Simulated scan of single mutants.
Amino acid sequence: MKKIALTIAAVASLGLTACGGNDAATEANTTAVDLNATDEAVTDVNAATDAAVDNALDNAAAAAGEASEAADNAAENVAEAADAAAH
């Protein structure tokens, strides 16, 4: 919600700048609002990237554990089949 408000404020500032002339203070305020929005976007992207990497690592670890268990089960099945064939 905060991002939307900052975006609206930036657009409103640009609109006022276009209508009211090129006041240096207005331009500075517009730039500050744009930079704040950019900083928040970078923070959000970094957080999303971290979450995605953590999720991928968790999924990979779970898949490795399941693959190991499947290999153990397969080895046990082979051993049982060999034992059954020997008798």
Rank of each mutant, 00 (worst) to 15 (best):
D54T: 09
T31L: 03
E27Q: 10
A25K: 07
N29D: 14
G21L: 14
A70H: 01
D44K: 10
T26D: 13
T43E: 05
A25I: 08
E69F: 05
A70Y: 01
G15D: 06
A56L: 06
A71K: 13
A24V: 15
C19L: 12
A25C: 05
V42N: 14
L57Y: 00
A41N: 15
T30N: 10
A61V: 15
L14N: 15
N36E: 04
D44R: 10
A71Q: 12
G20V: 07
T49M: 04
N22R: 02
T31A: 04
L35N: 11
V53S: 11
G20T: 12
D34Q: 12
T43N: 07
A12P: 00
D54I: 07
S68I: 08
N46A: 05
D23V: 03
D34G: 11
L14H: 14
S68A: 10
G20F: 09
S13D: 06
E40V: 07
L16G: 13
A62V: 03
A61Y: 09
G15I: 07
L14F: 14
A41F: 13
L14V: 15
A64N: 11
D23W: 00
D50H: 05
S13I: 03
A48C: 00
V45E: 10
A70C: 01
N46Y: 01
A28P: 08
T17I: 05
N29I: 13
V45W: 04
L16V: 12
L35F: 06
A37G: 13
D50A: 09
A67L: 09
E66Y: 01
A70M: 04
N55W: 00
A63S: 02
G15A: 08
N36D: 04
A24D: 15
V45D: 11
N29K: 11
D50K: 08
A24E: 14
G15N: 06
A32G: 02
S68N: 09
G21T: 15
G20A: 14
T49V: 06
D58H: 01
G15R: 05
D50N: 09
L35C: 03
A41I: 14
A51I: 15
G65P: 15
D44A: 12
D72V: 07
D54V: 07
A64R: 10
